[in-house]
Write a protein that binds this DNA or RNA. Structure first.
Length: 479
RNA sequence: GUCCCCAUCGUCUAGCGGUUAGGACUCCGGAUUUUCAUUCCGGCAACAGGGGUUCGAAUCCCCUUGGGGAUGCCA
């Protein structure tokens, strides 16, 4: 039994798509599950769309997700000579031919077919021309001579055996007229040369598989096993596969949205793959459990709510020091300034209560921001209202305005020992004195101190904030 | 148009001939919590339709419908 070797082969155009990392993830998991190797190959044969920045993004995002590759081919384009060598061999064998039809002629034929609502199937008149009769000094492409009848079988571990009638497969181009190899050729040659045993990739490649099998056959090479995974579709109610217009598609978007790598890892794993009722699955567990038979055949819609929910689990579980570190840049962005060491210390003290209440790092920065903003920011209507909302008096129709309760009590607060216990005693007594429910009474105070109705436990926050700062904020609210 | 793939709650999924069709997200109740979040209980909600095969189909076969992909000198 050959050692399993999978590959992730992105093309460096733009950013790394979320569907791309999922493909990488499945390749990685399958390889690791089988004790094999996972290789990364940059498919940069299209020089017009290639950008070096895109390659850096691929490296960054894969590393961020913890998908370390065991081997890398940094440039497929660099191997073009070898690809051309194979093309020539095919030519010599008579399995391929030179086609002198121009792009313009081709476009015309295609257009005509569309107009007449016919299936476009190009039949080159050069297919059976003797090489001795080829014109000289004329541009040509190299095409594969696809069998006219019979069928080509693709063995797919996810879909089973898929067969394609050869009559529907056209004579695909192997080499462009500028003498550069095309992806279809390069993939096959590289997969073979690198010893790839399992080609796991998006379903959009399923139609390419028979063409690649045909090339393999023409070369007399062993075919790999395929695994075409379903596409990630647009969110519920929207059409097509997930794309930019449906929202976040780049891995970078999720990093910026405050996802933890393990959160995205887990969500993506479950999107198109299942293992019984298991939802929270660690990396180690995933490697142990992952197999191609668990891959769901139907396309899966991306659900941001669930992704965030899963991420929330990991935020709560994560080490506090780590979440603190990760939250700092988000907080600095929000505050638009660098945090001092003292502030970082404060953040880490606040974090245990913060991380329990948020689902992303962005939310963590939002929730913790009141520790660092002395002036009350613009509040939304609902929150603002709490500041003036009358507090009902127990067993009566009456109610008291928050100011009535708080604004004359500063003198006593100033003398108070500023601890959770004494604050607790103090406010309990205050609520009793005014005969109101503690929870109701504390709500406006919460907003005055933390500018939100959602905060860490109030007394704890007040202690961290310090007496002076709290009194200042209460004073401001009383004006 | 042609080819290929697919089809269980709104969404992600379990189920692989005999189940009260399970779990998760969302939503709605309730409990805990000084508030919020968490957590815990409970609820709403699905086998696309039609034919077969079978003692018995969500499960197997066929058709219809629906969805997705491909149809490039892109990958």
């Amino acid at each position: 039994m050959k050692k399993v070797k999978t590959r992730f082969a992105p093309s460096p155009t733009g950013y790394l798509h979320i569907g791309g990392v999922r493909t990488a993830l499945f390749n990685y998991l399958y390889a690791k599950h089988c004790g094999g190797e996972f290789v990364l190959r940059i498919e940069d044969t299209d020089r017009e769309r290639y950008t070096p920045e895109a390659i850096e993004l691929i490296y960054r995002d894969l590393k961020w997700m913890g998908l370390a590759w065991d081997e890398i081919m940094e440039s497929q384009f660099a191997r073009r000579d070898r690809h051309m060598e194979v093309a020539n061999e095919l030519l010599v064998k008579g399995a391929a031919y030179k086609c002198f039809t121009t792009k313009e002629e081709l476009a015309e034929l295609r257009e005509k077919a569309t107009e007449e609502k016919r299936a476009f199937r190009f039949e080159s008149k050069w297919r059976d021309v003797d090489p001795a009769d080829y014109p000289i000094d004329q541009e040509y492409v190299v095409r594969l001579k696809t069998p006219l009848d019979g069928e080509t079988i693709v063995n797919d571990d996810i879909r089973g055996t898929v067969s394609f009638p050869n009559k529907d497969i056209d004579d695909l181009i192997l080499v462009r007229s500028d003498n550069t190899p095309v992806y279809q050729l390069s993939v096959v040659v590289d997969d073979h040369d690198m010893g790839i045993t399992h080609v796991i990739r998006g379903e959009e490649h399923l139609n390419n598989a028979p063409k690649q099998v045909l090339i393999m056959k023409a070369m007399g090479w062993d075919e790999p096993t395929y695994g075409h995974i379903p596409l990630i579709l647009a969110p519920a109610g929207q059409q097509g596969k997930l794309s930019k217009r449906h929202g976040a598609t780049a891995v970078g978007d999720y990093i910026n949205a405050g996802f933890l790598p393990e959160g995205l890892f887990n969500y993506l794993l479950r999107l198109g793959w299942g293992h019984g009722d298991d939802e929270i699955i660690s990396r180690e567990q995933a490697i142990e459990w992952f197999d191609l038979s668990g891959v769901v055949k139907a396309g899966a819609r991306f659900d941001m709510q669930k992704a965030i929910s899963v991420n929330g689990y990991y935020i709560r579980e994560a080490d506090t020091a780590r979440v603190t570190e990760l939250t700092i840049p988000f907080l600095e962005k929000k505050l638009d300034r660098i945090l001092t060491d003292a502030e970082k210390e404060l953040l880490s003290k606040a974090m245990p209560e913060v991380q329990e209440r948020v689902k992303t790092l962005v939310e963590a920065a939002d929730l913790a921001s009141f520790y660092f903003i002395s002036e009350m920011p613009e509040l939304d209507e609902k929150t603002k209202k709490v500041l003036d909302k009358p507090i009902p008096v127990n067993d009566s129709e009456e109610s008291k305005h928050p100011k009535e309760i708080f604004c004359d009590s500063f003198a006593k607060l100033e003398e108070l020992d500023w601890t959770v216990d004494s604050l607790n005693d103090y406010f309990n007594a205050l609520a009793e004195k005014h005969n109101v429910k503690l929870g109701k009474m504390l709500q406006p105070l919460r907003v005055a101190i933390a500018y939100s109705t959602i905060t860490p436990p109030l007394y704890e926050a007040m202690v961290l904030l310090g007496k002076e700062e709290c009194l200042k904020r209460m004073n401001n609210a009383c004006d």
